[in-house]
Computed example of a mutant assay.
Amino acid sequence: MSYDPIKAAQVVAKLLRLSEAKALDAVKAVTLVYLCDREFITCWGLPILDENRVSMPHGPINFATYQHINGQVGPVPTGWKKLLSNQANHMVGLTREAADSNLDLLSRAEIETIEAVWGRFGHIDTWDLALWTQQKENIPEWEYPGDLMRPILLATIMEAVGIEDPAEACEAIEDNRRIDALFEEIRGH
Rank of each mutant, 00 (worst) to 15 (best):
M56V: 15
V76M: 15
H68N: 07
E39M: 10
T95V: 06
D37E: 05
L94I: 11
V117M: 10
I61W: 03
D25Y: 09
D37Y: 03
T31H: 02
Q87H: 14
C36V: 07
A29Q: 08
T95S: 13
G59M: 13
T31R: 00
K14A: 07
H123Q: 12
E51T: 13
I61A: 12
V27E: 06
E112F: 13
Y34C: 01
K81P: 00
T133L: 07
A64S: 15
A21V: 04
N102W: 03
G71A: 07
D104I: 09
L94A: 09
G45N: 02
T126D: 11
S85W: 03
I41T: 01
N86L: 14
Q87C: 14
H90C: 15
D37M: 04
E20G: 06
R150S: 11
L16T: 07
T126Y: 08
S19Q: 07
F40Q: 01
W118I: 05
G122E: 05
F121P: 00
L24A: 01
L46M: 08
F121H: 15
L106T: 04
L83A: 12
A21W: 02
A21C: 10
G93W: 07
W80S: 03
R150P: 00
L94S: 05
P75I: 06
N102A: 14
I124L: 11
T133P: 02
A29P: 08
V92Y: 06
G74P: 00
K22T: 14
A26T: 14
G59Q: 11
L18Y: 09
W142E: 00
Q87R: 15
D147Q: 09
P140G: 05
K28A: 08
V33E: 03
L131I: 05
P75M: 05
W127R: 10
G93A: 15
G146W: 04
L18A: 11
W132N: 09
G45A: 02
T113A: 13
K22S: 14
Y66F: 15
I114P: 00
A21P: 00
A130P: 04
E51F: 12
I69P: 00
N62I: 00
E141L: 03
A99L: 11
L131Y: 10
G59P: 10
E115F: 04
E112H: 12
R120C: 13
L24V: 10
Q67P: 01
E97G: 09
K14D: 02
H68D: 05
A116G: 10
G79T: 08
M56A: 14
W127Y: 15
K136W: 02
